[in-house]
Amino acid sequence: MGSALETLCGQAYGAGQIDMLGVYMQRSWVILLSTSFLLMFMYIFAEPLLLLLGQSDDISRLAGKYSLWMIPQLFAYAVYFPISKFLQAQSKMMAMAWISAMVLALHVLFSWLLMLKFQWGIAGGALVLNASWWLLVVAQMIYIISGACGKAWTGFSWKAFENLWGFVRLSVASAVMLCLEIWYFTALILFAGYLKNAEVSVDALSICMNILGWTVMVSVGFNAAISVRVSNELGAAHPRSAKFSVVVVVISSILMALLISITLLIFQKQYPSLFSKVRKSNKSYTS
Results as ranks from 00 to 15, higher is better:
residue 252 S to N: 15
residue 249 V to Y: 15
residue 211 I to E: 10
residue 165 W to M: 06
residue 164 L to K: 01
residue 244 F to R: 15
residue 128 V to P: 03
residue 241 S to P: 04
residue 208 C to I: 13
residue 90 Q to D: 03
residue 265 L to I: 08
residue 97 A to H: 04
residue 16 G to K: 05
residue 148 A to R: 10
residue 276 S to L: 06
residue 231 S to T: 05
residue 71 I to D: 06
residue 65 K to N: 14
residue 112 W to C: 11
residue 207 I to F: 05
residue 38 L to V: 15
residue 174 S to I: 02
residue 176 V to W: 07
residue 156 F to M: 04
residue 103 V to D: 05
residue 215 T to I: 06
residue 213 G to V: 01
residue 44 I to D: 03
residue 25 M to H: 02
residue 120 W to N: 09
residue 198 A to F: 03
residue 234 L to F: 07
residue 139 A to D: 01
residue 182 I to N: 05
residue 254 I to S: 10
residue 147 G to Y: 01
residue 1 M to I: 02
residue 160 A to K: 00
residue 110 F to D: 09
residue 232 N to I: 02
residue 4 A to H: 07
residue 47 E to Y: 02
residue 173 A to V: 10
residue 285 Y to A: 14
residue 215 T to N: 15
residue 15 A to Y: 02
residue 211 I to H: 03
residue 199 E to T: 12
residue 62 L to R: 14
residue 104 L to T: 09
residue 57 D to M: 07
residue 256 M to H: 11
residue 61 R to P: 00
residue 134 W to L: 06
residue 20 M to T: 03
residue 6 E to M: 05
residue 279 R to C: 02
residue 171 S to I: 05
residue 265 L to P: 01
residue 194 Y to R: 13
residue 28 S to F: 00
residue 230 V to I: 15
residue 205 L to P: 05
residue 102 M to E: 08
residue 68 L to P: 03
residue 108 V to L: 12
residue 284 S to D: 13
residue 44 I to H: 08
residue 152 A to H: 02
residue 217 M to Q: 14
residue 55 Q to N: 09
residue 208 C to A: 14
residue 264 L to R: 10
residue 184 Y to D: 10
residue 131 A to Q: 02
residue 66 Y to D: 06
residue 17 Q to F: 10
residue 47 E to V: 03
residue 231 S to Y: 03
residue 70 M to W: 06
residue 90 Q to K: 01
residue 100 S to K: 00
residue 175 A to C: 08
residue 65 K to H: 14
residue 126 A to G: 11
residue 10 G to W: 02
residue 84 S to G: 06
residue 130 N to V: 01
residue 266 I to W: 13
residue 49 L to H: 10
residue 285 Y to N: 07
residue 282 N to D: 12
residue 54 G to D: 08
residue 28 S to I: 00
residue 208 C to T: 09
residue 28 S to P: 03
residue 155 G to W: 00
residue 93 M to A: 12
residue 50 L to G: 07
residue 71 I to S: 04
residue 1 M to N: 08
residue 157 S to L: 00
residue 255 L to S: 14
residue 115 M to T: 12
residue 268 Q to H: 15
residue 75 F to P: 04
residue 74 L to Y: 04
residue 166 G to E: 08
residue 33 L to F: 03
residue 169 R to A: 08
residue 3 S to Y: 15
residue 250 V to K: 11
residue 24 Y to M: 05
residue 108 V to D: 07
residue 247 V to L: 15
residue 106 L to W: 10
residue 34 S to R: 07
residue 196 K to P: 07
residue 269 K to H: 13
residue 132 S to C: 08
residue 139 A to G: 00
residue 217 M to K: 10
residue 181 E to P: 02
residue 48 P to C: 09
residue 114 L to M: 13
residue 191 F to N: 14
residue 2 G to N: 10
residue 188 L to H: 06
residue 80 Y to K: 12
residue 85 K to S: 05
residue 9 C to V: 07
residue 165 W to C: 02
residue 200 V to M: 13
residue 91 S to P: 04
residue 203 D to V: 06
residue 174 S to Q: 01
residue 229 R to I: 08
residue 161 F to Q: 00
residue 65 K to I: 15
residue 154 T to P: 00
residue 159 K to E: 04
residue 180 L to R: 02
residue 148 A to E: 10
residue 169 R to V: 14
residue 1 M to V: 05
residue 244 F to Q: 15
residue 36 S to N: 07
residue 101 A to T: 11
residue 45 F to V: 01
residue 64 G to W: 05
residue 108 V to A: 11
residue 81 F to V: 12
residue 65 K to C: 10
residue 121 G to K: 13
residue 261 S to W: 13
residue 197 N to Q: 12
residue 126 A to T: 06
residue 115 M to G: 07
residue 197 N to Y: 09
